[in-house]
Amino acid sequence: MTEIRTPRLLLRHWHDDDLVPMAEINADPRVMRWTDEGSVRDLEHTAEDIEHWEEEWDEEGFGLFAVELLASGELIGFTGLSVPAFLPEVLPAVAISWRLGTQFWGQGYASEAAHATLEFALQDRGLDRVISISRVGDRASENVIRKLGMVSERETAHPVHGHRLRVHAIDLTEFHA
């Protein structure tokens, strides 16, 4: 089982008791504002998401990590890798993403978790390149993406919802651990 420890965080596979706190994060409109069409997700949809994320680990050898605060053991959200099948024009690609509860914003947790995940992707999983897809206007995500050293490659439209997306990338030769 893959786990990653950073100075403040544990990135790990999902536990049964993660469902309720992740559902609470997904139920917050401020968190979900920049995701898909911006709608919140209930407990049932969150359970389906976690099941899908765990299946991706089995199928791809990577997936979304549950992110836990080392100091308290509290689940604060997720970070990880996935295949962005919703955007066929970037395939084959592996994308890094994150989602944290609002009480954990502005403390550097997203950057810390994403950097550890990017290092895992490029060094442990042997990926040559990782992308990130953000909605145009999501300044907080763009800030994390910039800290990762990713550069904007193109803008496109979400194929279902129509809003503007920005695709960023970094390859192994550009990454600094």
Results as ranks from 00 to 15, higher is better:
80 G>K: 12
30 R>Y: 10
28 D>N: 13
6 T>K: 09
36 D>E: 15
63 G>D: 13
147 K>W: 02
132 S>R: 02
61 G>I: 02
79 T>Q: 07
29 P>C: 08
3 E>W: 01
66 A>S: 15
156 T>R: 05
156 T>L: 05
125 R>Y: 00
63 G>N: 08
107 Q>E: 03
25 I>G: 01
45 H>V: 06
158 H>P: 08
159 P>M: 09
35 T>E: 12
133 I>M: 10
151 V>E: 14
62 F>H: 09
50 I>R: 04
87 L>V: 15
145 I>V: 11
12 R>L: 03
48 E>V: 14
92 P>M: 05
99 R>W: 07
155 E>P: 02
99 R>D: 13
44 E>T: 14
2 T>L: 08
4 I>N: 06
80 G>L: 13
27 A>R: 14
158 H>R: 02
155 E>D: 07
153 E>A: 12
93 A>M: 08
24 E>K: 10
75 L>V: 15
89 E>V: 03
154 R>A: 14
56 E>D: 11
108 G>Q: 02
50 I>P: 13
81 L>T: 05
18 D>V: 07
139 R>S: 02
3 E>Y: 00
36 D>M: 15
79 T>V: 09
29 P>Y: 06
50 I>G: 14
84 P>C: 13
105 W>T: 00
76 I>M: 06
9 L>N: 01
145 I>K: 00
50 I>T: 14
129 R>E: 15
118 L>C: 02
18 D>T: 11
101 G>F: 00
112 E>I: 07
125 R>H: 01
76 I>S: 01
76 I>Y: 07
67 V>T: 15
158 H>S: 05
34 W>Q: 14
23 A>W: 02
62 F>T: 01
103 Q>P: 07
104 F>M: 02
151 V>R: 15
158 H>T: 08
126 G>M: 04
106 G>T: 04
2 T>V: 14
73 G>F: 02
99 R>Q: 12
153 E>K: 11
59 E>F: 01
64 L>W: 13
173 T>Q: 15
26 N>H: 13
109 Y>H: 04
100 L>A: 01
84 P>V: 15
142 E>L: 00
123 Q>I: 12
81 L>D: 06
111 S>P: 04
50 I>W: 01
158 H>D: 12
43 L>D: 06
8 R>K: 07
76 I>N: 11
147 K>L: 00
165 L>K: 08
83 V>C: 13
17 D>P: 01
98 W>E: 06
126 G>C: 05
80 G>E: 14
119 E>D: 15
76 I>H: 10
167 V>W: 00
175 F>N: 09
23 A>Y: 00
41 R>Q: 15
129 R>K: 10
83 V>P: 07
23 A>F: 03
23 A>K: 10
112 E>W: 02
78 F>D: 14
120 F>A: 00
110 A>W: 04
110 A>T: 04
84 P>Q: 11
128 D>I: 02
121 A>M: 08
162 G>H: 05
47 A>N: 13
33 R>C: 04
148 L>A: 02
133 I>T: 11
172 L>W: 13
176 H>Y: 07
91 L>A: 09
10 L>A: 06
153 E>N: 12
